[in-house]
């Protein structure tokens, strides 16, 4: 990068526009250039600090019921990651709901994305609006309105596993559509035509050309849907009834007791994500090397 770029927020003295000077570096330019980098570093520290604290506090032996203040180093939370039965049960429930919601929303969303990108039909803009609305609705509104529907139809007593899953599919669907759509729209349409020119049937074209090309988009959409579902608190709280998912367990822990094991799970989530990213990088590099 040889271009001199300034941070957007900094103001410039009028003299800097003098055509005779752009190649001489004034100390002001130096400060401005490094200001941009400094802001970036500070923001990264801000974004990553809680994760560092979570990892740190997972090795804590808390004095009371709440793992908020550092006491002394201990491995006990890592040796016994299930603090209470409820915690691991809620974690399992979250994963179960997440998997079902991911499967259904990815399937439905991919179908919608194909229809929207590959076919021309009436009512397109209306359908686009319907897909945009769930993303423009605050979560709490979605939770409240859906609960109102369940109250009015099946009654308050029937809230539970399936109402949570239904709600999660609703809010994952639009995100899946957007993700798969952007992958589909960026695809070279001539590849499919080339396959048909080479006498591939529509099914063969789809299976051998289209699907492998769209697969990364579908995979990304599924990952996003799973992450959204497992991490959701607000909509879940409205539709859960007596069920307790992992985010709801954490929410309750703020009132009851906050064991160090929650920080262990938080650290494991980060470590698993980083491992998956590293693995996909290594696999991608190995595949490129083989070519």
């Amino acid at each position: 990068m040889t271009t001199t770029t300034a941070p957007p927020a900094a103001s410039t003295p009028s003299g800097a526009a003098d055509p005779g000077r752009p190649y001489r570096r004034s100390p002001l330019t130096w400060i401005r250039e490094h200001l941009l980098a400094a802001i970036t570093v500070v923001v990264f520290v801000f974004m990553l600090a809680p994760n560092a604290v979570i990892l740190w506090m997972s090795f804590n032996q808390p004095i009371g019921k709440f793992d908020y203040d550092w006491n002394r180093f201990s491995l006990s939370a890592w040796k016994n990651p299930c603090a209470t039965n409820e915690m691991c049960h809620s974690l399992g429930l979250s994963v179960e709901i997440g998997l079902i919601a991911t499967l259904v929303s990815t399937a439905l969303g991919t179908m919608i994305a194909f229809a929207m990108v590959r076919h021309r039909f009436k009512a397109r803009s209306g359908i686009n609006s319907l897909l945009f609305l769930p993303m423009a609705a605050p979560e709490v509104v979605m939770g409240a309105t859906l609960t109102a529907l369940f109250f009015n139809t099946i009654g308050p007593g029937s809230l539970g596993f399936w109402t949570i899953t239904i709600a999660h599919i609703v809010f994952c669907l639009s995100y899946v559509v957007v993700t798969v759509k952007s992958r589909l729209a960026g695809m070279d349409p001539t590849l499919e035509r080339a396959a048909q020119d080479l006498y591939a049937t529509p099914l063969q074209t789809f299976m051998k050309v289209t699907l492998p090309l769209v697969a990364p988009g579908i995979g990304a959409a599924a990952l996003l849907a799973f992450a959204l579902s497992v991490d959701d608190y607000i909509i879940t709280a409205f539709t859960a009834g007596n069920m307790e998912t992992f985010p709801m367990y954490i929410w309750g822990s703020v009132q009851r007791a906050y064991p160090a094991q929650i920080d262990v799970i938080g650290s494991l989530m980060l470590i698993c994500t980083m491992a998956i990213i590293a693995l996909s990088q290594i696999l991608g590099r190995a595949r490129n090397a083989r070519r």
């Binding site: 990264f44 974004m47 990553l48 600090a49 809680p50 994760n51 604290v53 979570i54 506090m57 908020y68 203040d69 550092w70 992450a227 497992v230 991490d231 608190y233 992992f246 985010p247 954490i250 929410w251 703020v254 906050y258 929650i262 920080d263 799970i265 938080g266 650290s267 989530m269 980060l270 698993c272 994500t273 980083m274 990213i277």
Partner: peptide
């Protein structure tokens, strides 16, 4: 990736971590 990766830890746990940092 560093911008996105923290989001994979539950946002509730991360928000509660600020309670420790800002205590």
């Amino acid at each position: 990736a560093l911008v996105v990766v923290p989001s994979f830890t539950s946002f509730l746990i991360r928000t509660i971590a600020w309670k420790t940092i800002l205590s």
